[in-house]
């Protein structure tokens, strides 16, 4: 039964991850004033990439990178409960808590560093360096916000955190913590102005520069699932989770649209600027928010 539940969770995360990626392309196309691709475009892309010939080899370490990233995303999805009550779609959340999830979020980028480093491509290495630098700055405000939420609920368990918000969601109870978490969430999603990792005008595709075919498809799938996991995490921590699947979709969708729109109207910060910005503004918000608890 648990196995079926886990499979269902993965399927939902995969499906909605790709759907949201398609929506992202469509919505930003609308901001640009054009129609954009069809919603199923990302599915076509990933199927095409899976059947593409693979001709590059850099040794097995190189291939391990995307695999570790994908497993990080899968574990992340499994450890975050989709719904705030009931038996189904809870996954492994009874075996872990928020701290485990925060730890698992770092696994992906580290695995990527491992793989890309062995390709020897300077742009890939540069992208990974940028990614890790930014990650350090992103985590500080996000951890502050997460600690605040945990102190407020008195537990690191997702169920208890969501129960604590049954009267008032954390977004309104602790707006400063939400602001801190939201800004670093934008960074985690790779949205402008914090999209310095894969900036095409600077480092080609960054970490993905050398990946093609199946491994690029794997990277695409993992990033789709991972962004769904991040949406879930934000919904659970600050919007009190969801009672049923419809509410979950509605809440993640609103959050996702907000991130997309903000991403399409701001210029990209350079590495130093984004670290500086993240250390200064959201961290300050987080500290003040913690102090007000």
């Amino acid at each position: 039964m648990l196995l079926l539940d886990l499979l269902l969770m993965l399927l939902i995360a995969y499906g909605f991850g790709f759907l949201y990626y398609g929506l992202y392309r469509n919505l930003s196309a609308r901001v640009h004033g054009r129609f954009g691709p069809s919603l199923a475009q990302s599915f076509s892309d990933s199927i095409k990439l899976f059947v593409k010939e693979e001709s590059t080899t850099f040794g097995w370490m190189f291939y391990l990178g995307p695999v570790i990233m994908a497993s990080g995303a899968v574990l992340n999805v499994l450890f975050i409960p989709f719904l705030n009550q009931g038996e189904s779609l809870q996954g492994l959340s009874s075996y872990g808590n928020l701290i485990v999830v925060l730890y698992l979020m770092v696994l992906g980028p580290l695995g990527n560093a491992l793989g890309v480093g062995s390709s020897g491509n300077p742009f890939g290495v540069m992208g990974v360096t940028r990614g890790l630098t930014r990650l350090l700055a992103l985590e500080l405000p996000f951890y502050l916000a997460a600690i605040g939420v945990m102190i407020d609920a008195g537990s690191a368990d997702f169920g208890i955190i969501m129960q604590a918000q049954s009267t008032q969601s954390n977004m309104f109870a602790h707006p400063l913590l939400f602001a801190a978490a939201f800004i670093s969430f934008l960074g985690f999603m790779g949205k402008s102005p914090f999209d310095v990792v894969g900036a095409p005008q600077e480092v080609y595709s960054g970490p993905a520069t050398e990946f093609s075919g199946k491994f690029l498809a794997l990277l695409m799938s993992q990033s789709a699932m991972f962004s769904f996991a991040k949406l879930l995490l934000m919904v659970n921590l600050f919007w009190g989770g969801a009672d049923h699947l419809g509410e979950l979709v509605a809440k993640t969708f609103v959050l996702f649209v907000a991130a997309t729109f903000i991403g399409s109207v701001y210029a990209r910060f350079s590495t130093v600027q984004s670290v500086e910005f993240l250390i200064r503004i959201p961290t300050l918000l987080g500290i003040v928010g913690l102090a007000l608890l």
Partner: peptide, 16 residues
């Protein structure tokens, strides 16, 4: 210029 700082929306509009 806007593309070089990752602000693609401006380019989409101005090329139109």
């Amino acid at each position: 210029q806007s593309g070089s700082v990752g602000l693609g929306t401006v380019g989409q509009w101005s090329i139109y």
